[in-house]
Every structure is written in C-alpha cells, then in structure tokens.
C-alpha cells in the first residue's frame, strides 16, 4: 500500500471530504477568477493588474458537456499496462459564480449513461493512480447526492 498522498499538481485543490475544493486565484483589481491558477499577472487585457489571491472555487456546478475515454490515453497519463483498460468519463462543469467551465474526470463508477447536460455535479477528492510509495491525488466530479 502507498503511504504518502501527493497532489498530481501542487496548489490546484485542497481539503478533505465535504471541505474539498478546487483552488484558483482572483485578481484583486478586476475580480477575474483563474483556474488553473495565475500567480504572476492578471490576464484580463482591460485590467491594469492587481494582486492575485488564492480562492476556493464553488463546490458544485452544472454539466456543460461530457465524454469518455474508451481507449488508453498516451503518456504522460499513467495507467497499469498489465491490466485491461477501464474507460472513465470526463465532465466539463460550468461554475455559475465564477462563470468558468472546468474539466475533470468523473468519480469512479460514474459513466456517461449517468450524465446529462445541465445536471448538478460536485467536486470530490479522488486518486488518479497509485504506485508503490504514493497515491497521486486529484479532483473528481460526481453527480450531487451520489455517495461513493
């Protein structure tokens, strides 16, 4: 069993259980939100640029679209080539407050047959893959109210 949990990317999400959130940044001058986070300069061309402060994104949003990966993606995606490929769903989610669409993998067990455009989903902690030492953690989208 792996004994450390490491985020697949630093600083993109934090928290446990119901407190889990994606982390973006917000410009203190124009209030534009960035995910993945911008930490150097605001990208709004109409903004002179304020400081960029870390901000948690909304926990839930609505499905903008979805698909799945029926074939094993190429590297740098990591998967166990000894095992048969298990397709997983990808969901693009519209967050109303941030007016942004964020892509993510669906939680294990959620298939395209479970999804419709416009349905509510929430962000939950997940594991992308594990090796001998490390569980590489990520975010997943899961239909609201469904428990793992």
């Amino acid at each position: 069993m792996p004994h450390t949990r490491t985020p697949v990317v630093d600083g993109w999400f934090a928290g446990e259980g119901d407190g889990f959130r994606l982390l973006g940044t917000r410009c203190s001058s124009c209030a534009t939100v960035f995910f993945p986070r911008e930490d150097v300069h605001c990208r709004n061309p109409h903004c002179d640029g304020g400081s960029l402060e870390e901000v948690p994104l909304s926990r839930s949003g609505r499905v903008w679209s979805y698909t799945d990966s029926r074939y094993r993606p190429p590297s740098p995606y990591v998967s166990d080539r000894e095992l048969p490929w298990e397709p997983y769903a990808l969901i693009a989610v519209e967050l109303e407050a941030e007016r942004i669409v964020v892509l993510g993998q669906a939680a294990p067990g959620v298939t395209v047959a479970d999804l419709t455009v416009g349905m509510e989903v929430e962000v939950v902690p997940g594991v992308l893959h594990e090796d001998a030492e490390t569980a590489w953690t990520t975010w997943h989208w899961r239909p609201t109210g469904v428990r793992a």
């Binding site: 697949v8 990317v9 993945p36 903008w64 679209s65 979805y66 698909t67 799945d68 990966s69 074939y71 993606p73 190429p74 590297s75 740098p76 995606y77 990591v78 998967s79 997983y88 990808l90 693009a92 892509l103 993510g104 993998q105 419709t116 455009v117 416009g118 992308l128 990520t138």
Partner: peptide, 29 residues
C-alpha cells in the same frame, strides 16, 4: 507541469478525441 498540453494528458488523460466528444455532446444537448 508548466505546459497545458502536457497537463491535460497527465492529469485528465484528455486526448484530442475527448475534446471532440465534449463538443459533439454539447451540440446534441
């Protein structure tokens, strides 16, 4: 990890056809 193209494969396994699938489903809806 500074390259968005590298990241979408590493973090999501999102191949080009996955994006095409998202656009297609969106049109259907």
């Amino acid at each position: 990890p500074d390259d968005p193209d590298w990241l979408r494969f590493r973090v999501l396994g999102a191949s080009n056809p996955a994006y095409f699938g998202l656009y297609a489903r969106r049109r259907m809806a």
